[in-house]
Computed example of a mutant assay.
Amino acid sequence: MTSGLFGQIALVVWRESMEALLVVGILNAWLARHADHASARTGRRFLWTGVAAGLAVSALLAAAMLGFASLLEGDREDLLQIAVTGIAAALILQMVVWMHRHGGNLQKDLVHGAERAMSQRSWWGLLLLAALAVAREGSEAVVFLYGILASARGTSLFTCLVAMAAGFAAAGALYWLLQLGSRRFSWRLFFRVTEILLLFLAASLLMTALDRAIGIDLVPPLSRPLWDTSRLLDDMAGPGGFISAMTGYRARPVLASALVYALYWLTAGALLFLPGHRRTVASVP
């Protein structure tokens, strides 16, 4: 596995794990502050059962996607991989736009759901709230990771697991630092930095899907390479390969690639910076 692919996997796991930890942290903090000792203990049992249920749903989705992909061969498999990689890119862009516009309502919505569950003495509502939140993040991670792996060839399972473990570890460490209230780290900075990284990752996945579509003559290249910067920064190996995997950079782009890349960033900019949408950031519990 190249360092770029390792970085893609670790980034997705890191971001999605952080969002799941944020959800669990908000609910757990609310229980600690607003429930008596016995109720908080009961609530935490349902909370962690909901987390486990959400993870189970994500695992089932992963198994279903792998099982379906194993039934396809040849051109059908190529088409599926192109489709999933493109869908993953679109979903990453949609997730970034949604968090950019509505992230500040996350804590309020979760707390409202927890209050309603406690007022009705129905801890099953808290379980469902946690399960849906974790399942959403886990399902997104499954689709994104499948799209990343579908865009690569000859990946090692062990190295994939190491990259995922690195993402989990980074998320846990950063969440711990944020909980300590360090002045060097903040949720605002976290969301701002990861939004940028994910936008570039979505661009990379989109370009990979386009490259494969051009390779099987599904999409015309429209021209020969417009320029060649491989002598300065080769996109096939070394630092250039990492930058290519993380940003969609191409040393020898054809016209179709240049047009799609430019259109992607114009679309992302329009969605993120349309007037009337104030940026909000989720609060740390």
Rank of each mutant, 00 (worst) to 15 (best):
T2I: 07
L274W: 12
Q107N: 11
A135N: 01
R231S: 11
R250I: 01
R183H: 13
G113H: 06
P285H: 00
Q179C: 15
T194K: 00
V254Y: 01
A56T: 06
T229G: 00
V51A: 00
A258W: 04
R76V: 10
M18G: 10
L129S: 11
L110H: 07
V219M: 15
G241A: 03
T208P: 13
Q179M: 15
R153L: 13
G25R: 02
L110F: 12
R250S: 06
A114R: 07
D234G: 05
H102E: 11
N28D: 14
R192C: 07
V254F: 05
P285L: 03
R224Q: 12
M207Q: 14
G43M: 06
G25S: 02
L233A: 03
L91G: 00
G172L: 14
M1A: 01
H100S: 12
A20M: 07
S39P: 00
G147L: 04
D75M: 09
R250N: 05
G113K: 05
G241P: 01
A245Y: 02
S257T: 06
A62Y: 03
R153E: 15
T280K: 05
L21C: 02
A245R: 03
L91W: 00
G67L: 08
V13G: 01
H112Q: 11
R136K: 10
A150R: 11
Q179T: 15
I9S: 09
I92R: 03
L79I: 12
A268S: 12
L266Y: 10
G215H: 10
R252K: 13
G86F: 03
A170T: 08
N105P: 00
V281K: 01
L79F: 09
F191K: 15
T229A: 04
I26E: 06
L79W: 11
Q107G: 07
L178I: 13
L128G: 13
L266T: 11
R279M: 07
V24F: 03
E77H: 09
Y249P: 01
L199S: 14
V162A: 07
R45Q: 06
L127D: 06
I196K: 15
S257R: 12
V51K: 02
E195C: 10
T247Q: 01
R76P: 05
F191A: 15
V254A: 01
R192I: 07
L126G: 12
R44S: 08
L61N: 08
D228H: 08
A114D: 06
A114C: 13
G25M: 02
T208G: 15
I243P: 08
G125T: 10
W187Y: 14
G215W: 09
T42S: 13
L161I: 12
V260C: 05
V84R: 03
V12G: 09
R183S: 14
V57G: 05
G154Q: 10
C160N: 10
D109V: 09
S151N: 13
D109R: 15
V13M: 02
S223K: 04
T208S: 15
L210V: 06
V12D: 06
V96K: 05
G215V: 04
P239F: 14
R192S: 09
V143P: 03
L233S: 01
D234C: 02
L271V: 09
W187S: 13
L61F: 08
S156T: 11
L5H: 14
L161R: 11
R76K: 14
F190A: 11
Y146N: 15
L93C: 02
A59V: 09
P239M: 10
L271S: 07
K108T: 13
L11R: 05
H102K: 04
S244T: 02
L178S: 11
R188A: 11
L222D: 11
E77V: 04
F144E: 02
